[in-house]
């Protein structure tokens, strides 16, 4: 799984951090998402999918590695 985030879309509500704290964090100055791991290990995939689902701003994109 490959994760990418769109900082311009992000509204900083932090739902991704609650769902998958090992993969997402927030910038201290404005709350915008910071991607900690663009290729998270398999055991985090469910949490990452949940993060993408709850993101209110469609700022998280997931691609399954070929």
């Amino acid at each position: 799984m490959k994760v990418s985030v769109d900082e311009d879309k992000c509204c900083g509500a932090g739902s991704c951090v609650l769902a998958a704290p090992d993969v997402f964090d927030q910038r201290d100055e404005d709350g915008v998402v910071v991607l900690l791991n663009a290729e998270p290990p398999a055991e985090l995939h469910d949490a990452v999918r949940e993060a993408a689902d709850v993101c209110p701003a469609a700022a998280i994109t997931l691609r399954t590695a070929p």
Binding site: G12, V17, L18, P21, D25, Q26, E29, D30, G31
Partner: peptide, 12 residues
């Protein structure tokens, strides 16, 4: 919104 975003990060 981003000017006050810092206060509401999960960490802060």
């Amino acid at each position: 919104r981003r000017m006050v975003g810092s206060a509401f990060t999960v960490k802060n």
